[in-house]
Each structure stands twice: as structure tokens, then as C-alpha cells.
């Protein structure tokens, strides 16, 4: 902890107002991100996992300043991103989107797509630009002859490579990967993940990797944060999390990974009930409505703080599961 973190989120909140009625009065809020404290170290890969709708994508958007923050702050190198000029921010932080096809203007050639950041930021022009774009494409494993093609002429994996090239164009220090592989075939997923790892190693980048796939997180992340209903429920180094999950929700998630093995694995934990609406989160621990070990009078009253159970392992639970033990199965 000697080095200051690259990005630090302090009590970060993003609430979306729900408008209703004739005069569009704000009735309530969807608490997409609700008080997240998280820091990202330089050069690491932080994975953020959670079910769909848990607010992880919104967290990414807020982190990059693409949507305004409701409360709290995001600090980059100790500076609040709201204080930073938009274009400075863009040169430091970049994003790769989930849907590689949708994130590219169908009417622009690859050259324009990859070159756009450079043109916008006035960094290059003319022949020099073409050279840079060629290098960028080659760095993600594409031929520079593809420059004149249009997005629809590429496969999903190739598109995602182009998206990575675009993110790299401004030479950022940090890239947010928002489920970059979820739209791809498994074989292509591995290629893209390996490419990302190679690039990270080469350029010393910092990644935040948002995904719902635990396998991918296990593969790429140094540390993992588990999100549930807009809150971080567990944060740990990858090995710690996968070996000794402390939060019952993490247990449930891990047990849901399909495994092909001959011996019987642990029984799968099936959570009862639906995810509560983020517009009306339950009081106390947000997970208590579905938690198999929730205790009445504690979990539904008191909000658990994210506290450390070991040096690299933080969990927000009143009754964290001991290392090595499995979750008691209720019904």
C-alpha cells in the first residue's frame, strides 16, 4: 500500500431518477451504483463481477465520466475526474464496449474509426495518421490493409480487436473493458483475452474488467470485486476469492460455474427469489432477502460495512463464511 492507487472511488453513487406523472415529478430513484469504495492500482487488472442489472456497467460508465456522478467522487491519480478536462480524461482512460458491432459507426471505415480519437484530439493528421493507424492495427493482430474496410465486413472477434485498437490509439494509461468477450465465441474469447494480456504487459496498462463470467475473471484478473445491487459485497485477490469465498453471494456465484469433472462437485446453491428492484432496495444488507444464512434482526436492519478479513480480502457481510467451509444448504 505504499504506492497511491491510480483510481480511487469514494462512496460513489449513481442514482437514476424515475419520473412519473404529468409534470414529470421525480418519484424515486434507481440506485444503480450505491456507495462504492474501490481503488485500482497501477498496472493491475481488477475484475468486477455480478449478475446482469447489478450496476456494474453503470459503475464503469461513471468511472469514466461518461455519465455524471450523483454523489461521491472518482479520483484519478489523486485528482477528481470532474475537475479534469474531458479530453484529458479521454487520453488517460479508454473503454472497450461489450457489443463490438454496435460500438462502431457502420458508415465509417476502420481507418476513420481507429483514427477518430487521434483526429479529435488533434494529435496526428495526413500520412502520419495512416502510419499510426497501421501500427495500431498490427499491434492488435490485424493487417493494416484492412484499413479501408467497413465494420460489417469483419467477424465479431476482429471487430473487438478494432475496438481495442481504437482504445489504444490515444495511448491511455487505463482501459475499462466492459464485458469485451461476452458477445464472442469461446474460442475467440480466449484469443481476445490473450491479446489484452499481451498488450497490458507490453504497455503497462491498468485494466478494469467488467464481466458476469467468473471463468474469464479467473483467467485475467489480479483482484476481483463482486457486486450486488449497486454495492460491492466482496473484494479480494483472485486466488483468495476463488479458494476462500467469504460472502454467501460469492459462494452462490461460484457454485454456479459449470464444471466438467468426473467427481461430484459441491452441490449447487440455488438462490431463492428474484433480485430486488434497485429502485426499492431492501433495508439492511441488500442480500438478506435471498441469503441462506441471513439472521433476522441483524441482516435486515444493519447495513454491513466492507471490512477486511485478511490482508487482501474484504467482505461486506455480518456473518462471513470461514475459509474452507462451505455454505450451509438451506432446503
Amino acid at each position: 500500500m505504499s504506492e497511491p492507487p491510480l483510481i480511487e472511488m469514494k462512496n460513489l453513487k449513481k442514482w437514476f431518477p424515475i419520473k412519473a406523472g404529468m409534470l414529470s415529478a421525480v418519484k424515486s430513484h434507481v440506485r444503480a451504483v450505491d456507495g462504492v469504495n474501490l481503488s485500482v492500482m497501477k498496472g493491475e487488472t481488477l475484475g468486477i463481477v455480478g449478475e446482469s442489472g447489478c450496476g456494474k456497467t453503470t459503475l464503469g460508465r461513471v468511472l469514466l465520466g461518461l455519465t455524471p456522478i450523483t454523489e461521491g467522487s472518482v479520483e484519478y491519480n489523486g485528482v477528481d475526474i470532474r475537475m479534469m478536462k474531458n479530453r484529458v480524461l479521454r487520453k488517460k482512460m479508454q473503454i472497450v464496449f461489450q457489443d463490438p458491432g454496435g460500438s462502431m459507426n457502420p458508415r465509417m471505415s476502420v481507418r476513420s474509426i481507429v483514427g477518430e480519437p487521434l483526429i479529435i484530439n488533434g494529435m496526428s493528421d495526413g500520412a502520419e495518421l495512416t502510419k499510426i493507424i497501421g501500427e495500431l492495427l498490427e499491434s492488435v493482430g490485424l493487417s493494416k490493409n484492412l484499413m479501408t474496410r467497413f465494420p460489417h465486413e469483419f467477424s465479431g472477434g476482429q471487430k473487438q480487436r478494432i475496438a481495442v485498437a481504437r482504445a489504444l490509439a490515444l495511448n491511455p494509461e487505463f482501459i475499462l473493458l466492459d464485458e469485451p468477450t461476452s458477445a464472442l465465441d469461446v474460442s475467440v474469447q480466449a484469443q481476445v483475452l490473450n491479446l489484452l494480456e499481451d498488450i497490458q504487459e507490453e504497455k503497462g496498462l491498468t485494466f478494469v474488467f467488467i464481466t458476469h463470467s467468473l471463468n474469464v475473471v479467473h483467467h485475467i484478473s489480479d483482484r476481483v470485486a463482486v457486486m450486488y445491487l449497486g454495492k460491492i459485497v466482496e473484494l479480494s485477490d483472485t486466488i483468495g476469492l476463488f479458494e476462500n469465498p467469504a460472502h454467501p453471494y460469492t459462494h452462490a456465484l461460484l457454485s454456479a460455474i459449470p464444471e466438467i469433472s468426473i467427481e461430484d462437485s459441491d452441490e449447487r446453491i440455488i438462490l431463492s427469489g428474484d433480485v430486488p428492484s434497485p429502485a426499492n432496495p431492501p433495508p439492511g444488507c441488500v442480500f438478506h432477502t435471498r441469503c441462506p444464512i441471513a439472521k433476522e434482526g441483524v441482516c435486515d436492519v444493519e447495513i454491513p460495512e466492507l471490512s477486511s478479513i485478511s490482508s487482501e480480502h474484504l467482505v461486506a457481510c455480518h456473518f462471513p463464511v470461514e475459509p474452507g467451509k462451505s455454505l450451509p444448504i438451506v432446503n
Partner: peptide, 26 residues
């Protein structure tokens, strides 16, 4: 609301650029 508009924003495109280069051509 399409992703590529957000992508353009994420690389720092100005409103007029988004309008004229990304939205109107489509």
C-alpha cells in the same frame, strides 16, 4: 442511444462532431 455514439463520446468527440459525423449520416 446507440453504442457507437457513446464510443465517440468516450474518445472525446464534440457535440457537433457526434451530430454531423455519427448521428446524421445514419
Amino acid at each position: 442511444e446507440m453504442n457507437f455514439v457513446e464510443a465517440a463520446k468516450s474518445v472525446g468527440a464534440s457535440s457537433s462532431r457526434i451530430m454531423f459525423r455519427h448521428i446524421l449520416p445514419n
